[in-house]
C-alpha cells in the first residue's frame, strides 16, 4: 500500500510525520520511505541519514544553446520560446540555462539550424538503508535545474524495485507537477493541516488533486492547539476523515535538532503520532483484504 503525505502549504509537518510513520510501520511491516520533495528533500535529515549508500546522477531534461557562428540574429527563438528563456544582449540572442526547460521549440523554429540541445545532469537519486532498518529512496534536483515532476516519477520507479508492504511517500509543498507526480497512483493520502486560515486554504487546493485522482484520504491536524477554533472547524468539516490531532510540542524541535524521528522520544507528540499510526494500520489491514471504503 502506498501512502502519500501532502499538505499544499509548506512547513506543516509532512516530513516530521512521514519519518515517524515510516519508523512505526517498519516495526510491523516491510516498509520503504520515498522522499518525493526533490527540490528540498528533508526526510533523510529526520531519519538521521549521514550518507547514502547508493547515488546516481540522472539526466532528465535537455537544455538549448545557440551556436553563435550559425546564428543570424533573426530572433525567431526569442519570439517563440514559451517561457521567456531566451534573452537578447547587444543584438545577439542567448539561452538562459536556468530558465530553459528543453522543450525544443527554438530548435524547431530556427531557420539556420543554430540551436543545440544537450542533456544536462538534472539531479541525483539516492538510496540507503537507514539505521532504523528500512530503506529510504530520496532525490535531489540540482539547484537551477528543472524537471522535478519527472524526477519524482523516476524516484518512484526506483522505490518500486524494492519489495514492500507499505511505501510512505513524502510529497513537496504546492499542488504543481512534483506534487501531482507524488500523489498519482497512491492508495491513500494523509493530508496534513495546521489550524490556520492559510493552511486550511492550501488543504482545499491539494484536496482538488487528491479528489481528481479519486484517492481515499484522511486529515491530520498538526499543532492543533495553536488555535482551537480553527481546529474545531477542521474537525467539523472533515469529521470521520480526521485521522489524528498532534499537539504543539517543543520535543519536535529537539528531535530535528538531534536528527531523529519524533517517535523515538517519549512526549505528547509521540502519543498522538502512535494514535495516527493506529488509525492508518486499520486502513492498511482493510486495504490488504480488498479495497478501502
Amino acid at each position: 500500500m502506498k501512502i502519500v503525505i501532502a499538505s499544499g502549504k509548506g512547513g506543516t509537518g509532512k516530513s516530521m510525520i512521514s519519518s515517524s510513520l515510516s519508523l512505526l510501520f517498519s516495526q510491523e511491516f516491510l516498509t520503504v520511505a520515498c522522499d518525493c520533495d526533490v527540490d528540498a528533500p528533508n526526510l533523510g535529515l529526520w531519519l538521521g541519514v549521514e550518507r547514502y549508500e547508493k547515488k546516481e546522477v540522472v539526466s532528465i531534461n535537455e537544455k538549448a544553446s545557440i551556436l553563435q557562428a550559425k546564428c543570424d540574429n533573426c530572433g525567431k527563438c526569442y519570439e517563440f520560446c514559451p517561457i521567456g528563456a531566451i534573452g537578447r544582449k547587444n543584438g545577439k540572442y542567448y539561452v538562459n540555462p536556468l530558465v530553459c526547460e528543453g522543450c525544443g521549440v527554438c530548435q524547431i523554429v530556427c531557420p539556420r539550424n543554430a540551436v543545440l540541445l544537450e542533456k544536462t545532469p538534472t539531479g541525483e537519486i539516492r538510496e540507503t538503508n537507514t539505521k532504523w532498518g528500512f530503506t529510504l529512496v530520496s532525490g535531489q534536483v540540482y539547484p537551477g535545474e528543472t524537471g522535478s515532476g519527472k524526477m519524482v516519477q523516476q524516484l518512484r520507479q526506483r522505490a518500486e524495485e524494492h519489495s514492500y508492504e507499505v511505501m510512505i511517500l513524502d510529497s513537496a509543498a504546492g499542488i504543481g507537477c512534483p506534487v501531482i507526480a507524488s500523489i498519482t497512483g497512491c492508495d491513500f493520502a494523509v493530508l496534513v493541516a495546521e489550524p490556520t486560515q492559510t493552511s486550511i486554504s492550501d488543504l482545499h487546493r491539494v484536496l482538488h488533486i487528491v479528489n481528481h485522482f479519486n484517492i481515499p484520504y484522511g486529515v491530520v491536524i498538526n499543532k492543533y492547539d495553536l488555535d482551537l477554533n480553527f481546529s474545531r472547524s477542521l474537525e467539523e468539516e472533515f469529521r470521520q476523515k480526521i485521522l489524528g490531532k498532534i499537539p504543539y510540542d517543543t520535543h519536535v524541535i529537539d528531535s530535528i535538532v538531534n536528527l531523529r524521528p519524533v517517535v523515538v522520544s517519549e512526549c505528547k507528540a509521540t502519543d498522538a503520532l502512535k494514535k495516527l499510526y493506529g488509525s492508518l494500520k486499520k486502513i492498511l489491514v482493510i486495504h490488504q483484504n480488498g479495497s478501502i471504503p
Binding site: I83, T146, S148, A172, G174
Partner: peptide, 14 residues
C-alpha cells in the same frame, strides 16, 4: 515566492 527551488521559484526570482 513558493517553497522549493525549481521552475516556479526561478521564474519569480528573475
Amino acid at each position: 515566492t513558493s517553497p522549493g527551488a525549481h521552475c516556479n521559484v526561478i521564474q519569480a526570482l528573475i
